[in-house]
């Protein structure tokens, strides 16, 4: 058992099947679908509340997604803990600033990567709410329910993603 938990990588099929089974359990016992970007919105609202007070919660968007710690928020906190445990057990936890693929194309300087990641992050924070879900909420949970909105979303996630990645690495890089 421990040896298995210490492995650096599991087969993508084993991981996928386990995520599928996890989604049965979240539907059964919590009436919830696996999703991540709602937790980001809630955290953003909680931080804004610290600076601007309770009136933040009155914004129309936070009426829809109250910035409080509920199932979706503790779920996202769990993702952080779970990934850390996995990295720790397999001995792969290590502070890294520039991913390998990026370094090969654009060099080892930290700042260009951080700026790109920040711009991508701001876009992603906005886009995941614009699309009403992310790779988890649409890409896994919505598609497995055969939701029309989710299949359209995930197809356009990949169209946009593939086009932009090819532009970054095959045209610019």
């Amino acid at each position: 058992m421990l040896e298995w938990l210490q492995m650096k990588h599991w087969s993508p099929y084993a991981v996928g099947i386990a995520i599928g089974i996890l989604s049965w359990l979240t539907f059964l016992f919590s009436n919830q679908a696996v999703s991540c970007s709602t937790g980001i919105t809630q955290t953003s609202g909680m931080i804004e509340k610290i600076f601007r007070g309770k009136r933040v919660a009155q914004k129309a968007y936070y009426q829809k997604f109250p910035p409080v710690a509920d199932w979706k928020w503790t779920f996202l906190l769990g993702v952080l803990i779970g990934a850390f445990l996995s990295a720790l057990l397999s001995g792969s936890f290590d502070f890294k600033w520039v991913p390998q693929l990026w370094e090969q194309a654009f060099g080892a300087a930290v700042l260009p990567r951080l700026i790109t990641a920040f711009v991508g992050g701001v876009f992603m924070g906005f886009a995941s709410r614009w699309a009403n879900g992310c790779t988890s909420g649409h890409g896994i949970s919505g598609t497995l329910q055969l939701a029309v909105s989710s299949w359209i979303s995930v197809i356009f996630f990949f169209i946009g993603g593939i086009a932009c990645a090819l532009l970054i690495y095959r045209v610019i890089g």
Binding site: A131, T135, S153, A165
Partner: peptide
Amino acid sequence: GGLFFGISFALLG
């Protein structure tokens, strides 16, 4: 929104 998500996805990684 999906297309914009894709662009963000490639930038952020």
